[in-house]
Write a protein that binds this DNA or RNA. Structure first.
Lengths: 208, 208
DNA sequence: CCTGATATTGACCGATTGGTCAGGTGCTTA
DNA sequence: TAAGCACCTGACCAATCGGTCAATATCAGG
């Protein structure tokens, strides 16, 4: 049963998917050739077509897998214990860590979201969104019913703010890095600690 | 001097740039062919090479122009009058409106920012960032020195939060639109009105 | 040992890619 | 009128693209 070569069932397919994922996360669809994928996977180009009927299908499979894995990683970020404020802090931290942990997956899925006109598989990309969102909104609603938060804000809006802050950080941290006034480019933990604190307390001193 | 045909100086060049901008904002670099650009511009492919030595140079010119125009549009968003809080509200609103007004430019420049490995012209893309950022940070600092804002937060962090919220909204509003809990997908004004209010007041009731 | 199915390959296909080139406009200046 | 020049073109090029195909390895079960 054990082969000397690690040729577990579906090994070829997996090799192709892994190579394609790497390449597609670095460059756009048209910038990645089947030859390049084959080369990266260490097989012949023709062999790819034994597993996938065409390039689009392969890309879709990669996107599907990436989306699934990303969801799994991100969903770990949502876990509740302690006060709602603590849950929020915890979430902000873990969510950003999850993004930074699998940057290829994030770039891959996000590029698909941004693509206009050709919605190759937005369904997959959008799923992660819905998960994150509903989980986060639930937390915020809980904070409101418990009286820890004010009642007069839209939970979905705050969720957008938090998610957006992390995604924006992820996308822009290379720019942040050579922009002097920003000190938190390489300190994601400090970044969303600050973010959450501002969200909780607000900018205006409590002198009402 | 006047020709019947509107052949003002640089007309051909401008036609090419316009067509290329449109195409490059819809699809990635490799997905746009020189033939397509020529066709869209209503000229022959060979003629493009009379104005631009190669595809990369053309793309760079497009990016340069787009970045410049985008900066111009965005900089209009920064104008100060009234209280610092009002300036902040004004900025959030106008910044998002500017993004939505020229979506092709934003997509073009932002795609370049996200591109890994091949930083074709991040310099241009990053310029807009620096402008926005310093202007916004200055406003926030003013709020702090005037005592309208608390002293214990990092202005750059709040600027990131605000900019990020708008960019995130811009990028994700197609997804928002078919996600029920979100009601502000088609109401950008309401969106950043809410955003700013949360930033100012915070989530936690002032009961200290 | 044979057989059939799964993997895998190099050679090949038509189409398209970015880019070149020789030549043809039409206007300006001498 | 002739020369010069910016503009513009169709035809062409080698290279690469996604994809096909016939010919092989490889290996399990009979």
């Amino acid at each position: 049963m054990d082969n000397i070569q690690a040729t577990a069932d579906g090994d070829g397919r997996q090799r192709i998917l892994a190579a394609a994922e790497k390449l597609f996360s670095d460059k756009a669809f048209d910038a990645v050739s089947m030859s390049a994928i084959a080369c990266a996977a260490g097989i012949s180009k023709a062999n790819i077509y034994h597993y996938f009927p065409n390039k689009d299908t392969l890309y879709l499979a990669v996107l599907r897998m990436a989306s699934h894995n990303l969801r799994a990683v991100l969903n770990e970020a949502v876990s509740a214990h302690g006060s709602v404020m603590d849950v929020l802090r915890h979430f902000a931290h873990n969510h950003l860590q999850a993004l930074l942990k699998k940057p290829e997956l994030v770039r891959l899925v996000w590029r698909e979201i941004l693509e206009k006109g050709a919605p190759r598989a937005q369904e997959f990309a959008e799923q992660g969104f819905a998960d994150m969102f509903s989980a986060l909104v639930d937390v915020l609603k809980l904070g409101q019913t418990r009286g820890e938060f004010r009642q007069d804000f839209d939970p979905a809006l705050v969720a957008t703010l938090l998610l957006g802050a992390n995604v924006f950080f992820f996308q822009s941290r290379d720019i942040f890095r050579h922009y002097p006034p920003i000190t938190f480019a390489d300190d994601p933990a400090g970044y969303d600690a600050g973010i959450v604190e501002i969200l909780l307390r607000g900018l205006v001193p409590a002198t009402s």
